[in-house]
Simulated assay, not measured.
Amino acid sequence: MLHYIGKRLLQLIPVLLGMTFLVFMIIRAIPGDPAQVILGQLASKEAIESLRASLGLDNPWYVQYFDYLFGLLQGDLGESMRTVQPVATEIWPYLAATFELAFFAILIAVVIGVNAGIISAWFQNSWFDYLAMVIALIGVSMPIFWLGLMEQWVFSVELQWLPPGGRDDARDPVSAVTNLYVIDTIMNGRFDQLGDVLKHLILPSIALATIPMAIIARMTRSSMLEVMRADYVRTARAKGQKMFWVVYKHSLKNAIIPVLTVVGLQMGLLLGGAILTETIFGWPGIGRYIYDAIQYRDYPVIQSGILVVAFIFVMINLLVDILYGLIDPRIKYD
C-alpha cells in the first residue's frame, strides 16, 4: 500500500508541472495587460511601464515561468498583483468556503442519491423506480443557475424561510478561526450563529448537489441491479434475512466501488466548478476568487488557484483508490 501511495505521489509531480505550464501559457494568451487593468484606462504610458517592470512582466515568458516555478518549489505561491498580498495566505478563506459548500453538497448528494438508487434497484420497474429515474434525468439536465434563482425566489422572496445568499449574517459576522464557519461557530460556542450558518448553506448546497445526486442515484441503481442478481444475494433472501441487511450488508458493500469512484470525481469537480453557484448566492469561494482574478489579469492568483484545485482533485482520486482496498480486501495494489 505504501509503495503504491509513493508511486502515485511521484506521478503527481509531472502532472502538476504540466498543469503549471499550460495554465501559465493560456492565461497569458488572454487579451489585456495586467498593469493597464490595475492602473485604469487613464494611466500614463510611463506609469504602466513602471508597474510592468515592478511586476516582472517585462521579462521574457520563459524567465517569468521559471521564476514562478522556482518560487513554487520553495512553497511560495507568489503575490497578488491587485492586493499585493501573499496568495498562500489570501487563498485559504476562499478555499475553505468552497470546501465547506462542496462538503455539504456532496453529503446531500450521497445520502439521497445512494438511497434513491438502492430503493429503485430493489423495486425495479415500480412507480418509485420510474419516478426516481425521471427526477434524476431532470436533475442532470437542469441548469444550476436556473435552479439557484428559483430557490431564491421561492424560499427567500416568497416564503422568506432562508437567506438568499452569503455565508453568515452581516450584522453578526462569524469570528473566523479555521474559516470553516460550521467548525468556527462550534469552537466559539456560538450555537445561535451555527443555526444561521447552516441556514445560509441549505440553498447553495442543494443547488450544487443536484447534478451529483442524479449521477450517483443512476450509478447506484445500475450497480445494485448487477449485484442483486448474484447467487449470494438470492441465498440471503431465501434464508429469510431482512431486506435491510440484505441490501446494506451484502449487496451495497459489493456495489459501492463504482459509486465511490463517481463520488470522488464529483467532489473534485464541485471544488473547482462551483463558480455559478457561488456567483448566484454571493458565496465567497475559490471559483469567484479565480474568476475575479481573471477579470484583473492577476496571473499569480490564477496560476496558484488552479494549481491548488488540481492538487486537491488528484489527492481526492488517490484517497478513493485507497478506499477501494479498505472496502474490498480482494483488491491488491502492486
Rank of each mutant, 00 (worst) to 15 (best):
residue 164 P to W: 09
residue 160 Q to F: 11
residue 146 W to R: 12
residue 145 F to M: 08
residue 154 V to H: 04
residue 145 F to A: 05
residue 151 E to R: 02
residue 153 W to N: 07
residue 171 R to D: 10
residue 165 G to D: 01
residue 149 L to N: 11
residue 169 D to H: 09
residue 155 F to W: 06
residue 171 R to F: 13
residue 151 E to G: 09
residue 172 D to I: 05
residue 177 V to W: 00
residue 170 A to V: 15
residue 162 L to K: 05
residue 146 W to D: 09
residue 165 G to M: 05
residue 176 A to D: 04
residue 160 Q to A: 14
residue 178 T to M: 00
residue 173 P to M: 04
residue 148 G to W: 11
residue 179 N to L: 00
residue 157 V to T: 10
residue 150 M to D: 04
residue 178 T to W: 01
residue 150 M to S: 12
residue 165 G to S: 05
residue 164 P to V: 12
residue 159 L to Q: 07
residue 151 E to F: 15
residue 162 L to D: 06
residue 177 V to G: 00
residue 165 G to T: 02
residue 150 M to R: 03
residue 175 S to R: 11
residue 160 Q to K: 15
residue 172 D to H: 06
residue 155 F to I: 01
residue 150 M to G: 05
residue 156 S to R: 03
residue 144 I to H: 14
residue 179 N to M: 00
residue 175 S to G: 02
residue 171 R to N: 13
residue 178 T to K: 01
residue 176 A to E: 06
residue 179 N to Y: 15
residue 154 V to I: 15
residue 146 W to E: 09
residue 176 A to Y: 01
residue 157 V to W: 09
residue 145 F to S: 06
residue 149 L to V: 11
residue 153 W to E: 06
residue 156 S to L: 04
residue 150 M to E: 08
residue 160 Q to V: 11
residue 177 V to P: 00
residue 155 F to M: 02
residue 159 L to A: 06
residue 174 V to T: 11
residue 165 G to P: 03
residue 177 V to I: 13
residue 156 S to P: 06
residue 158 E to N: 09
residue 146 W to Y: 15
residue 166 G to H: 06
residue 150 M to A: 14
residue 171 R to S: 14
residue 165 G to V: 05
residue 155 F to N: 01
residue 149 L to C: 03
residue 148 G to D: 09
residue 150 M to Q: 13
residue 146 W to L: 15
residue 162 L to C: 07
residue 145 F to E: 05
residue 163 P to W: 12
residue 144 I to R: 14
residue 171 R to C: 00
residue 167 R to Y: 10
residue 172 D to K: 02
residue 171 R to M: 12
residue 156 S to A: 13
residue 157 V to P: 00
residue 148 G to T: 11
residue 152 Q to P: 02
residue 154 V to K: 02
residue 176 A to T: 02
residue 172 D to Y: 06
residue 169 D to S: 08
residue 149 L to R: 13
residue 163 P to M: 10
residue 145 F to Y: 15
residue 163 P to F: 13
